[in-house]
């Protein structure tokens, strides 16, 4: 994740104390060309907690989110640690180019922000931020957000409706640009820890080839999202 900080906000950052609740306006924009975000989970939590971590094996709840878009497990995890959270702010899928905006009041001590959503259509790709320190000074802060691979499923790029953890395949392409008849890009996952997603391969054969994805539609470059936090 790369940061673009507004100059005025930077200079103010050392001047105010974070020891009280904050009123945050948070926007998340899907920067991809043809990849949807499944329902988002956005949480402010205490230091030491995570929805995911790179270089660490995905939890079962993260796997369920990354393979099928199911945030119920991760959301329960956040409840258990008294996080302040917003589920599904976009009211369903966040389409390419679309922005969702939410308001989050975070209690004192819940001074780190995490969010996740599955990248659809992928096997186990997701967009997210892991434990970002929430700025304390009033102002608007913009961050570039990367795509990750949960490392729990081979990226075969076959659309077969499978979204349950452990079942190979991609649930669906909401944009309707996918093909059929792919033979499978791979059947193995070399890195079983959470890592930066290498992107999808796709192909230009709508009824065959290795992939059911379209290489001209479903690929992406990082960042896959832009996150804006306004500290009110």
């Amino acid at each position: 994740m790369r940061k673009l900080l507004s100059g005025f906000a930077v200079t103010g950052a050392l001047l105010s104390a974070p020891a009280m609740a904050q009123d945050l306006t948070i926007s998340i924009t899907n920067l991809t060309h043809g990849t949807y975000f499944t329902p988002l989970l956005v949480a402010a939590h205490a230091n030491g907690n995570h929805l995911f971590q790179t270089g660490v094996a995905a939890s079962a709840h993260l796997q369920a989110m990354a393979e099928g878009g199911d945030i119920t497990g991760l959301s329960a995890d956040m409840t258990a640690i008294n996080a302040d959270k917003i589920e599904n702010p976009a009211g369903g899928l966040l389409a390419p180019g679309a922005t969702t905006t939410l308001n989050l009041i975070n209690a004192a001590g819940n001074d780190q922000l995490s969010f996740t959503a599955m990248l659809l259509p992928t096997n186990d790709g997701f967009v997210g931020v892991d434990a970002l320190s929430i700025p304390t000074a009033a102002g608007t802060y913009t961050y570039r957000v990367n795509g990750y691979d949960a490392g729990t499923e081979a990226n075969d790029e076959i659309i077969n409706g499978a979204g349950a953890p452990g079942n190979p395949g991609i649930p669906a392409d909401p944009g309707g640009a996918s093909g059929t008849g792919g033979t499978g890009v791979t059947s193995t996952e070399a890195n079983t820890l959470v890592h930066i997603h290498r992107g999808v391969l796709g192909d230009s054969d709508p009824t065959g080839g290795a992939s059911d994805l379209d290489s001209s539609v479903h690929r992406w470059l990082n960042p896959v999202a832009e996150l804006t936090i306004t500290v009110n």
């Binding site: 899907n30 920067l31 991809t32 060309h33 043809g34 390419p96 180019g97 796709g202 230009s204 290489s215 001209s216 539609v217 479903h218 690929r219 992406w220 470059l221 960042p223 896959v224």
Partner: peptide, 12 residues
């Protein structure tokens, strides 16, 4: 195309 401005996916 989709007729909204967005991130570029790169070229194949």
């Amino acid at each position: 195309d989709r007729d909204t401005v967005g991130g570029h996916p790169g070229v194949v």
